[in-house]
Amino acid sequence: MSFTSFIPQDKASEELQEQIVQIMRLDADLHAKIPRPLRMPMTNLLRVVNSYYSNKIEGNSTIPADILRAEAQDAPQEIKTSKDFQEIKRHIEAQRRLTDDPINPVEVCSRDSISRLHREFYVGVPEEMLDIQLNEQGDIVRMIPGEFRQHGVRVGHHIPPTVEQMLAHLGQFERVYRLDWIHGLSRFLAAAAAHHRLMWIHPFMDGNGRTGRLFTDQYLKAAGFGGYGLWSMSRGFARNTAVYYDRLNAADHPRKGDQDGRGILSDSGLLRWTQYFTETALDQVQYFSAQLDPERLSERINIYFELRSRGALSDSKGNALPELRIEAREVYKTLLYMGDQPRAELQARLGAGERTTRGLLSQMAKEGLITLDGRKPVSLNLSRHSIEFLFPYLW
């Protein structure tokens, strides 16, 4: 027996539909208004955000400051080599590969694509981490990244479909969530349902949660949410992990009579999950829209560089940041609103000498505020210290 694909638009309440329309509008606005030079640094930052929160849901204890330090290559070796950090690093690299070699939007829900998402996360993992405990008796099986499970499993109170049922459900999943036949608000309703259905099917021996969230990232992009990648569902899910799992569990329940749909799972549970998914998306797109609002961002940039020029700003651990000339603000805003610039052009805008400009750019590059690469034009970056100030409450 099959499951309900998603809540039909005519069964969605007026409030739910209005929320989805608001998400679509805010996403389009975010996609349109972000300064082009900031898009790549923000995309890189959101990979870190996604990875941190998706792994946090799974119990990973790495803190954001250590992730950003390691990304900047100045973290202690014991952090870089820890299991928790390696999980996050693999997750970031998987997202980068998926950007460089994207999945065809029509094929995003195919078995091959889902297999690839799982395989991407496990690239480079030590072999001992692929040994999965099969049962309470301690039997061990070796998981092959990207290969669908060949054993029955139990996950807490949830008993996923048998192997035979799983393969049938994956076939249904591939058919019903194809985006070439889903349009309008139904694309978002399908994204919500698909996230739950993939987690419920539980196609792999391990890594289903992170794979499911990677899938949702890809599906929302494929569904036409052009601003996605500048906001994050994983951040929203991780804000209250207990609620996330509670809503997933509600949609796991079997159908409760003829008034609860015609599939094997509860339509009322799916509606409850869809409402939660929608509220989470709206909260996240509102947060990132506010942070990236040009006027508010410009104001925070002004304050950041004013404080830095007076040596009056500390990092998250209370350590004073070095004084930075106020001219750094002009450099930063020029790169933000005008894009990459030759060093000579920046020197001319500052009206400063070559030595002064060189020293300022070197300090900004050392801190990660800009990127200097040989003779290439200077480009914008987001340093771990500026992130803490320019994007408050991100973590």
Rank of each mutant, 00 (worst) to 15 (best):
S2L: 10
S5P: 06
I7P: 01
I7V: 15
P8C: 00
Q9A: 14
K11W: 09
Q17N: 08
I20D: 03
V21T: 14
V21R: 13
A28Y: 05
A28N: 09
D29A: 13
I34E: 01
M42N: 01
E58G: 05
S61R: 13
I63T: 13
I67F: 04
L68A: 11
R69C: 05
A70H: 04
S82L: 09
D84A: 13
I92T: 06
E93T: 11
R96T: 15
D100P: 03
P102K: 06
I114G: 04
I114W: 04
Y122R: 01
E128W: 02
L134Q: 12
Q137G: 09
I140Y: 07
P145I: 00
G146Q: 01
E147N: 11
Q150P: 01
V153Q: 15
V163N: 04
V163I: 08
M166V: 04
A168C: 09
L170C: 08
G171D: 13
R178A: 14
G184M: 08
L185C: 05
A191P: 09
A194M: 01
H202Y: 05
P203E: 08
N208F: 03
T211S: 14
L214F: 13
L220N: 02
Y228Q: 10
L230Y: 11
W231M: 04
A238M: 07
R239S: 13
R239Q: 12
V243T: 14
D246I: 06
R247C: 00
D252Y: 00
R255D: 07
R255N: 10
G257H: 10
D258R: 13
G261A: 11
I264E: 15
S266I: 06
R272P: 05
T278V: 10
D283R: 13
Q286C: 11
Q286I: 09
F288C: 07
A290W: 03
E295M: 11
E299G: 15
I303S: 12
Y304N: 04
L307A: 12
L307Q: 12
R310H: 15
G311W: 04
A312N: 11
D315E: 06
P322G: 08
A328E: 05
E330A: 14
V331G: 00
L335K: 06
Y337D: 07
G339T: 00
R343A: 01
A344F: 10
E345K: 14
L350N: 06
E354M: 10
E354W: 06
T356E: 15
R358G: 06
M364D: 01
K366G: 08
E367C: 02
L369M: 14
D373A: 14
G374W: 05
S383D: 06
H385T: 10
Y393C: 11
